[in-house]
Write a protein that binds this DNA or RNA. Structure first.
Length: 259
DNA sequence: AAAAGCAACAACCGCCAGGGG
DNA sequence: CCCCCTGGCGGTTGTTGCTTT
């Protein structure tokens, strides 16, 4: 018996999401919350499979996401956590509020790996690389990290996945908490978004368009208030009589509306 | 200015685990 | 206990934009 596809793929759209699709998904989730993903595309009027919607939301549209490059501190956290956890990106991401496993994975593959190699460190073992002339043939082929995903049997010496962290990790946890309290960070616990707090992406572009110069700020509110995106949200019933007295807070890459 | 190559990252794919019936 | 469904995960691919030639 063959495996059932996650969804009926006939007539479903693939590839990059359009702004319109993003709006539909955001509107739906802001209104209804995260429910059964399988039902989301149908209810939201999207020609996507539920899995695709979930991925788009968790990796890109979630209001609590940070955008932009990882800071030096975050990068160090990733390296340290990777040394302890291996390629368990979701576990690593859970220590970095606002970052997704996909984002960290991509950053690791494109930036950190190279950086470590430059520094003479094997990105997989986190040990110093042997001099080039001593390199084993197998070293060109990346050794497979412990496959935690498949079995969870080969736990790292100290499993940081549970509440008890190895001493070094615990220290980092404390350090981290000095900046951000991550001790009980959990995406599930973040309210999808309260009706009175909507993070609105930049005008005309639902993903990151950092506000790089103050000169652009003057028009932001106007652009925002008259964007299709905003009007659509405002037309939603939950906003009836609600949007008088809105305040606009401008962050690096998003706008927070409060009333 | 155009073409080729490269890097970055969004999105997809397939597998697995857990929960419910 | 078994089967099915759903969500989550990690690996991989495709696309886009930038840089170099």
């Amino acid at each position: 018996m063959g495996r059932q596809p996650c969804c009926d793929k006939v007539g479903l759209k693939k590839g990059p999401w359009t702004g319109e699709e993003d709006q539909k998904l955001i509107n739906f989730i802001l209104t209804n919350g995260q429910c059964c993903w399988r039902a989301v595309p149908k209810l939201a009027g999207l020609l996507r499979c539920g899995k695709s919607c979930r991925l788009r939301w968790t990796n890109y549209l979630r209001p609590d996401l940070k955008r932009g490059l990882l800071s030096e501190y975050e990068e160090k956290m990733v390296i340290d956590l990777h040394a302890k956890l291996g390629n368990r990106w979701s576990k690593i991401a859970s220590h970095l509020p606002g970052r997704t496993d996909n984002e960290i994975k991509n950053h690791w593959n494109t930036h950190i790996k190279k950086k470590l190699k430059k520094m003479g460190i094997d990105p997989l073992t986190h040990q110093p690389l042997p001099p080039p002339h001593q390199a084993q043939p197998s070293s060109c082929q990346e050794p497979t990290p412990p496959d935690h995903h498949k079995t969870e049997v080969v736990a790292p010496p100290h499993s940081a996945t549970e509440t008890t962290l190895p001493p070094s990790a615990a220290v980092e946890e404390n350090t981290m908490q000095g900046l951000i309290d991550t001790s009980d960070f959990c995406i599930d616990e973040i309210p999808v978004v309260q009706p009175h707090e909507i993070i609105v992406p930049c005008e005309g572009n639902l993903y990151s368009t950092p506000v790089s110069s103050s000169s652009s700020l003057s028009n932001l509110a106007e652009q925002l208030l008259f964007s299709d995106y905003f009007s659509e949200i405002m037309n939603d019933s939950i906003w009836e009589d609600e949007y008088r007295g809105l305040e606009l807070f401008i962050d690096n890459d998003s706008y927070l509306l409060k009333y």
